[in-house]
Structure formats: structure tokens, C-alpha cells
Design a protein around this nucleic acid. Structure first.
Lengths: 199, 199
DNA sequence: CCTCCTATATAACTAATGTTATATTATATA
DNA sequence: TATATAATATAACATTAGTTATATAGGAGG
């Protein structure tokens, strides 16, 4: 190549990413990115074909950060860690969470959201030693437990994100998630005891 | 007055409301409203000072429709009706739900969201005959039940709205809500039996 | 029937945004 | 060192939005 780029691709992505965190997706414009870097808008277009393309890259980056939140070992329970990380991400990275799941519901990667349920399930299964009780449930009960926990987690994340529940500490969030999980587990056990499999 | 208005306030509000339902809030522009009614943009400004003001009126109208969804007597249980109506609203009025709770999280009426919890609690209390078991719980257990149910309901509404759970029938939604409520109730009973009030 | 008055229509203004055309500048290569 | 080329800056273009200035027209009041 003849000319080396003064401004790198990652520099542009990073600037845009910071803008989302600070002002939300609505704050991300070509001019705002350029201004943050201290250049014109042209270097952006030399690394990216359009803002739509930029948005996709940013969604991926945001999902990667969310994954970090979820993979942290807060507790011994992998399922709880996934849920807790999700809620804390929603609380501490408000604009990123909104960017991913709220501001543009049509462009939400449904694979991603729906896949979270499967992820829960998979991770949970692979760490059976940690939560032996889980395996006392029949298959349908297991699936229900995971699904209900995921619904609860998602609701908690949304409410914590919007501030509708006031400010929630790590401890409060953990307690809520553990209680809900316990409740769903108890329900599953009792249901199976009564013999009626699926209503 | 000298001249009667050709276009009424409610005509404008209704047109804008329909636009939200069809295309979401992003589809609501002064020109789009005018086009729907078949007039210019001026009649809008003769009834409303700005689009911000229009938006407030639309939020109120949307909340009123949500209230209708929630006040319908689907079942004998008022609490269940409130939750079910909320989820069905999220499912069947996707754009209105997004307008109220997702697209602009900063402008969500937090009183409204937080108040939903209290509303649950109030309505529930006033209809004690219907769910006598509720009163077997201590006060803290009651509050927890309502709060957890509300979190679960909100999560379910969000997921149903985004389509992440596929299409959900009335029956499925009802079943989910009843199961979750049952689970939270069982958990409350068991917790109190064990004597440990709060953690 | 005439004259205002005001609701409405038309058109313009402003601001913001994505994108592109053109100018400029710096550097790799001859 | 000179030239060409590609990266970047500058500036313009197109579109869209809210809003407002001006023109028009149609009915109320005399």
C-alpha cells in the first residue's frame, strides 16, 4: 500500500463506542465521532462503508462486553453469574443495554436474546456438580426453571436499567435472583410431586 | 369565536396515535399526521404548541389504553388480570408498548412504572376474598410476592414484545403468569416456615 | 352583499445528518 | 528531489425534521 492510515479502524470504533456509553446511540453521528478523534468524517468512511455497518460492529462490541460481565465469577453458580452479570450490565452500562435491547427493538438480534435461554441451559448443564438439586427435576422441570429464571432476569434488568426500582446494589440484585431461582425450583419440585406434568 | 375549526384536537391525536400503532413513534411527524388527516401541518399547531406537547398527550392516551387492557376481567383474579393485560398489551400493541417503555427510556414516566407495583398491591389487597392464601403470608412476604410477580410480568412482556420467545397465545401467557405466581407464593410460605424473615 | 377575521395552505427557514465531490497534503517510490 | 497516489480536510448536496412567515380562502357579523 502507498499511504498508511493515520486513524485506525479500532480508533473509530472505540470513539463511537464511548459515544454510545456517554450519550446513547442517538449521540453517535459521523461528525461526533470525528470530533472526538479530532479528525474529519472522511477517515470513518475509509474504514466503514456506512453508518449501518458501523452500527453492526458496535452491536457486536457491546455484546462482547456483556459477555465479559456474564463470564465473571461472582459466585459459585454459573447460572447465577450469567443472570447477575446481565442485570449488572443493564445497571452500569445503561446506554449500551438500551442500545442492544431497547432503543431499536426491530434490530435486536433475536438469535442473541433467544439464545440466552439456551446459553443458560447449556452452562447450567455443564456445571451440574454445583447445583445438584437441579437434576432432581425432570427434563420439563429443568427447562421451565431455566426459562422462568431467564424471564425474571430480563425483567429485572429492564427495570433496574430504567431506574424504576430505584438504585439497586449488587447484594440486592443477587438476593432477588437467588430468591426467584429458589422459588422456581421449589415450584418445579412440588409440581412433579403432584404428578401433573404439564397442566 | 369567529371561525370554527375544521380539524379537531381529537382528530389530530387520533391520527398521531394510529401512526404510532402502525409505524412506531419514529413514524410520527407533523407532515405524516397532516397527510393522514388530509390537511396541512398548520391545524396541528393550532391545537398543540409543539411536538413535545403532542407526545405527552399521546403517552397519556397510550397509558389509558393499557389501563383498559389491564382492567378487563379475564379471570377471577385481579392481580392476574393486571399482569395478563400488561403482557397482552405488549404482545398486541407492540409499537405502543415500545413507545411507552422502550424507545425513550429517559422519558418513561417512572411514577407510572414504579406505581404499577403499588397498583398490583392495592388491587390485590382490595380483593382479598379471591386469593385468601395471599393473607397467609406475612407483610414482607406479601410485598415480595407482588414485587417478584411484577418483575416477572415485566420481563415476560418485554420478551413477548420483541418476539424473542416466538408467538405466545393467551393460554401460554396465562399459564406462565400463574405458574410464576404460584412459585413465588410457595417460596414465601416456605421461607416463613423456616423462620428466617429476610435472608 | 360586503368586510374582516381566522383557520388553513403554501412555502420558506433552520438545523441536523448521512453521504459525496473536490481540494489539499503528506508520504512512498522512482 | 520530484511525482504520483492515497488519506484526509473542506465544503457542498440531499433529505428530513420542527417550526414559522406569508398568502389564501371561507364563513361570521354587519
Amino acid at each position: 500500500m502507498n499511504q498508511p492510515s493515520v486513524y485506525s479502524y479500532s480508533q473509530i470504533i472505540d470513539a463511537a463506542f464511548d459515544l454510545i456509553r456517554e450519550k446513547g446511540w442517538m449521540g453517535v453521528t459521523t461528525r461526533a465521532i470525528a470530533n472526538k478523534i479530532g479528525c474529519s468524517t472522511m477517515p470513518i468512511y475509509s474504514h466503514v462503508n456506512s453508518v449501518d455497518e458501523l452500527e453492526k460492529a458496535l452491536r457486536q462490541k457491546a455484546r462482547e462486553l456483556l459477555k465479559e460481565f456474564q463470564q465473571h465469577r461472582y459466585t459459585e453458580h454459573v447460572l447465577l453469574n450469567l443472570a447477575f452479570g446481565y442485570v449488572v450490565f443493564a445497571r452500569d452500562e445503561k446506554n449500551l443495554f438500551r442500545f442492544l435491547y431497547m432503543e431499536k427493538p426491530d434490530q435486536v438480534d433475536l438469535e442473541d436474546v433467544a439464545g440466552m435461554k439456551d446459553k443458560f441451559y447449556r452452562e447450567f448443564s455443564e456445571n451440574s456438580e454445583e447445583v445438584k438439586a437441579f437434576w432432581e427435576l425432570k427434563s420439563s422441570g429443568q427447562e421451565a426453571l431455566v426459562q422462568y429464571t431467564w424471564i425474571f432476569t430480563h425483567g429485572l434488568a429492564m427495570l433496574v436499567n430504567s431506574g424504576a426500582l430505584g438504585s439497586y446494589s449488587d447484594e440486592k440484585i443477587l438476593q432477588l435472583l437467588m430468591n426467584a431461582g429458589e422459588a422456581f425450583y421449589l415450584w418445579g419440585i412440588q409440581k412433579e410431586g403432584n404428578g401433573n406434568e404439564n397442566k
